[in-house]
Every structure is written in structure tokens, then in C-alpha cells.
Simulated assay, not measured.
Amino acid sequence: MPINLSKGQKVDLTKGNPGLKNIMVGLGWDVNAFDSGAAFDLDAAAFLLSDSGKCPTEKEFVFYGNLEHASESVKHMGDNLTGEGDGDDEQIQIDLSKIPSNIQRVAFTVTIYDSEVRRQNFGQVSNAFIRIVDETTNVELIRYDLGEDFSIETAIVVGELYRNNGEWKFNAIGSGFQGGLAALCGHYGIDVA
């Protein structure tokens, strides 16, 4: 049985699962039944953060334009342009043993591509979730359903992995931003041209 988290809840990941190394972070969502005249393209990303809460360089930003971190610790499995169908819409593979020692947290985000032009926001999205699966056993360890807390936001920090006394934990964050990917990049210290 996965642990179902609520917003703000923190849970041990490696302490209760000794030897856990390879995990898959799955993110999914549905678009509400209405026609905005444009397809919804939601994008998952991972920001690898140092003690400062910022990315040391832009290479610590893993997304559809940079699918794999140089350490091979974080690998984005590719962009899903429609979000149609059941299950995960996008997946990010994590090798906990390869995350560089200067990285203290890995934040997972979802943004709406071209949201301003398409006039879209997370108020039009439902059933958003993040789940963490042990890739060795294919067992779902953690699930966090975001609920319908959003209206005008175009970016969400869904949750994050973080180091704590030599173990990895997960924090269900669920906080929204306006300004899409650019706002998130600014928040995490990445200069967007």
C-alpha cells in the first residue's frame, strides 16, 4: 500500500526502504471537460538544488530540453504533449546513489507550456498527482493527489526529495506560481533568456 500524502506532509523514503536506489517519479493529470481552443501541454521538470535552495548551474535543471543530468542521477523520460490516457503522463527516473553530494534537494514541478498565449491555468486541470515507485520491485511507495486547490496558477511545485541525516525523505509541497516556467526558473536561480 502506498502512503497517501496530504499537502505539507513529509515522509521517510529510504529509512523504511533500506537499499532503495532506483525510483521512478510519475506525474499525471487530466484536463477538465471544456474547450479552450488549444491543446494542453503540461511539462514535468526536476530542479537539483544545493544548500542555498538554488540550482548550482543551469545544468541542474532537468526538463524536456535537457533530459538527463550529467551525473546520470536524474533522467526525464520525455515530453508528453497531450496528457491523454490513464496513469503517468510524464516520468522522471532517479538513481539516489548517483545524486551529487552538493545536491540537497530535488524539486519536482509541473508547468503549462505556452500558458499565456493559450490562456490556460491549473484551474482547468484536475486529478493531478505525483507518485514514487521503487523501480526494482515496481511497488508504489508514495502518492500525493494535489486536489483542486488551484485557479490562476500556471506552475506548481508538486513535491521534493530531500536529504535528512543521510536518508532521503519526500515533502508534498503543492504550491502554485503565476508566470509559468520562467517564474519557477527565477525561484530556483536559473536565468531564463
Rank of each mutant, 00 (worst) to 15 (best):
59 K>E: 13
19 G>T: 04
9 Q>M: 15
31 V>H: 03
7 K>F: 02
41 D>I: 00
5 L>S: 05
36 S>N: 12
35 D>R: 07
51 D>R: 11
26 G>A: 15
33 A>Y: 09
10 K>H: 05
41 D>N: 15
57 T>L: 06
6 S>Y: 07
55 C>F: 04
6 S>P: 03
59 K>P: 02
56 P>D: 04
59 K>M: 10
10 K>I: 14
27 L>H: 04
50 S>G: 15
18 P>T: 05
17 N>W: 08
17 N>H: 15
39 A>H: 04
20 L>T: 00
10 K>L: 12
23 I>M: 01
38 A>V: 05
21 K>N: 15
23 I>W: 07
25 V>P: 03
48 L>E: 12
37 G>Q: 03
14 T>G: 03
56 P>H: 00
32 N>R: 14
15 K>N: 11
14 T>P: 01
33 A>P: 09
27 L>Q: 13
41 D>W: 04
9 Q>W: 02
61 F>Q: 06
48 L>F: 07
60 E>C: 10
34 F>M: 13
26 G>S: 14
12 D>V: 08
44 A>N: 04
8 G>S: 05
9 Q>T: 13
25 V>C: 09
28 G>Y: 03
50 S>R: 02
35 D>V: 04
40 F>Y: 14
22 N>D: 14
5 L>I: 04
23 I>E: 00
20 L>C: 03
25 V>Q: 03
45 A>H: 00
57 T>W: 00
5 L>G: 01
46 A>K: 02
33 A>E: 13
43 D>Q: 06
60 E>L: 08
43 D>P: 12
54 K>G: 11
29 W>Y: 12
10 K>S: 15
23 I>S: 03
51 D>P: 13
46 A>L: 02
45 A>P: 05
33 A>D: 14
24 M>H: 09
40 F>P: 10
56 P>C: 08
54 K>E: 13
15 K>I: 12
4 N>M: 09
5 L>M: 11
18 P>E: 08
21 K>W: 01
14 T>A: 05
42 L>I: 02
18 P>A: 10
13 L>E: 05
13 L>A: 01
7 K>E: 09
26 G>P: 06
46 A>Q: 05
7 K>L: 08
39 A>P: 05
24 M>E: 14
14 T>D: 01
36 S>Y: 08
14 T>E: 00
41 D>K: 02
23 I>R: 00
59 K>F: 10
55 C>H: 03
40 F>A: 06
30 D>V: 03
32 N>W: 02
15 K>C: 08
18 P>I: 06
5 L>W: 01
17 N>G: 09
28 G>N: 11
48 L>M: 15
37 G>H: 01
23 I>V: 15
49 L>V: 06
53 G>Q: 01
31 V>N: 07
52 S>F: 03
47 F>W: 06
39 A>T: 07
16 G>T: 07
30 D>M: 13
52 S>Q: 09
52 S>L: 09
8 G>H: 02
5 L>R: 00
43 D>K: 10
38 A>M: 11
56 P>G: 02
11 V>H: 04
7 K>N: 10
44 A>K: 01
55 C>G: 06
9 Q>E: 15
3 I>H: 14
24 M>D: 12
45 A>W: 01
13 L>N: 00
31 V>D: 07
58 E>C: 10
3 I>M: 10
8 G>Y: 09
7 K>D: 09
58 E>P: 14
54 K>Y: 08
